[in-house]
């Protein structure tokens, strides 16, 4: 573009912009700016140039400070985000872990329950809790009694049952051993009958024989026969007496398993 201004006019405008003119020169320049739009426009260019240079200086300063401050701000923000990430997913992870543990627990419990349910039976509970009865050594008893004791001690349970049947005068001990022999041979019904008879005889007599043993083995006989309610009644009698010789054993019989047996029966 054609420039009609002498370098001196532009220089005068620069000096005016920078406050380097004398008061007289300033007055004449201001008059010129008011009267001449073209000169005013050139002066506006100079003002814009000065402002742009200032803005450029400021931009460079901010850019320098940005390079200085941004890594710090970014590090703090990242740390905060990281914390947030740690906290939030941490909660999620904990929840996941808890859920996993719960799932495993449920799975194990469910599996165990299924296993228990499927493997628990009258015979299994009976077998788990049956303890072989050892006759105490006694002296001075009759021939029949010697015979039934010997057969019982020799694990000849069928022989015990036969002798028991052929015996006319039966005492608590005969019924008791016959009851245990019936249990050993798998005849839970006869076992129950014989052991109940022991209870009846003991109830009618001041002399109690095999009373506590009968409580326990009758409970086992009921379990074997699938009569869990009656078994529980016997067990509760034992559990109510801490001095009962089968107190410990009665408490070892799993109530869960008894409930399973009830459901099954």
């Amino acid at each position: 573009m054609q420039d009609n201004f002498t370098p001196d006019v532009i220089e005068q405008l620069i000096r005016y912009l920078d406050g380097e003119l004398s008061p007289e020169e300033t007055a004449s320049t201001e008059k010129l700016l008011q009267e001449d739009a073209a000169i005013k426009e050139r002066f506006d260019n100079l003002v814009a140039a000065r402002n742009a240079i200032r803005a450029e200086g400021l931009r460079q300063k901010v850019k320098g400070l940005h390079q200085q401050f941004y890594p710090e701000v970014s590090a703090v923000n990242s740390a905060e985000n990281e914390t947030a990430k740690i906290i939030k997913p941490s909660f999620g992870n904990s929840a996941k872990i808890i859920l996993r543990i719960a799932a495993v627990f449920i799975f194990v419990v469910a599996g165990y329950s299924v296993y228990e349910y499927s493997t628990t039976s009258n015979d299994s509970v009976y077998a788990d809790n049956f303890i072989k009865y050892q006759l105490p050594v006694s002296r001075g008893e009759g021939q029949v009694q010697q015979s039934i004791d010997s057969l019982f001690s020799a694990n000849n349970f069928n022989g015990v049952i036969e002798i028991f049947k052929s015996t006319t005068e039966k005492k608590q001990k005969d019924y008791f051993l016959a009851g245990l022999a019936s249990l050993e041979t798998g005849d839970s019904k006869s076992a129950i009958d014989n052991l109940k008879t022991v209870q009846q005889l003991n109830g009618n007599s001041t002399a109690k024989y095999f009373e506590q043993e009968t409580d326990y083995y009758l409970a086992l006989a009921y379990i074997k026969a699938g009569n869990i309610n009656e078994a529980e009644k016997q067990l509760n009698i034992i559990k109510a007496n801490k001095q009962h010789m089968f107190y410990q054993k009665a408490n070892e019989i799993s109530s869960t398993k008894l409930r399973i047996l009830k459901m099954k029966n």
Partner: peptide
Amino acid sequence: KYKCMKQLEQMIEDNQDLK
């Protein structure tokens, strides 16, 4: 300084689209 400012002002003046 005058020379540099004149040079910049002239570039602005020559760039009418900008204004």
